[in-house]
């Protein structure tokens, strides 16, 4: 059997008529509000999937809670013996909420995603025939990654070997400080701009947007 199969891609337009009870909805949703049957993936953005305003400062605990709540209802495990149409909708909807959660829970992906929604072009690769938005291979800056590995190795040495080797101890200490310093700086800058974007007026927003694009480009 070939590992690839062709699925029907659905376009979604509002108003939507429920495939099961034929009630029309003005908003496209994951479930029919009338008969609560699963619907094809709605044409909404990731923030709308979780009923969130388009903000960058997110309460991760309640995002997780909402993600779990939707997963319980939509996951293909719940539809293993349902009709083929429902299985297909459940699969597509779950992919949507998983994609949305993966993007929103991560500070950098979330920022990138919002900037794209706002029309900014970041990391757009026009090389070759691919005009898409494939992720660049290293999202975490290489020097930072290097630091992490270095630190881990030293920590292991410390655990396995002589705990009191003062040279090693201070090396680890230095590496640790450098590492957290780099992380904090990046995060701090980004978070500062988040607040400006979430709470600012139009002009502040535009400025914050440009700052964030610059910050993300530097990370690459």
């Amino acid at each position: 059997m070939s590992p690839l199969k062709v699925l029907n891609s659905d376009s979604t337009a509002v108003p939507v008529v429920c495939w099961s009870c034929a009630v029309a909805h003005n908003e496209s949703t994951l479930f029919c509000t009338a008969c609560s049957k699963v619907q094809p993936p709605p044409g909404v953005d990731y923030f709308q999937v979780f009923n969130l305003p388009r903000h960058l400062q997110i309460d991760l605990a309640s995002l997780e809670q909402e993600f779990h709540k939707l997963s319980r209802k939509l996951h293909p495990d719940r539809f293993a013996r349902a009709t083929e149409a429902e299985r297909e909708f459940s699969l597509a909807d779950t992919a949507l909420i998983n994609d949305a959660y993966r993007t929103l829970r991560d500070p950098v992906r979330r920022t990138e995603y919002l900037l794209k929604l706002e029309g900014e072009e970041i990391g757009e690769e026009h090389a070759g025939h691919n005009t898409g938005n494939a992720e660049r291979t290293s999202r975490v800056p290489a020097d930072l990654l290097e630091e992490v590995f270095e630190l881990n190795m030293q920590l292991d040495e410390l655990r396995e070997g002589d705990q009191k080797d003062p040279a090693l101890l201070s090396e680890v200490g230095a590496a640790g400080e450098k590492f957290s310093g780099m992380l904090n700086e990046l995060d701090g800058n980004l978070q500062h701009q988040w607040a400006l974007w979430d709470d600012g007026d139009a002009a502040t927003r535009t400025a914050a947007q440009k700052q964030m694009v610059a910050l993300l480009d530097r990370r690459r």
Binding site: P76, L91, A92, T94, A95, L96, N98, D99, Y101, R102, G128, H129, N130, T131, G132, N133, A134
Partner: peptide
């Protein structure tokens, strides 16, 4: 380590 089901949409053009 993406939770599955997971999807991605890519756009291609001709050269």
């Amino acid at each position: 380590n993406s939770t599955i089901p997971a999807s991605a949409t890519e756009h291609f053009t001709t050269g």
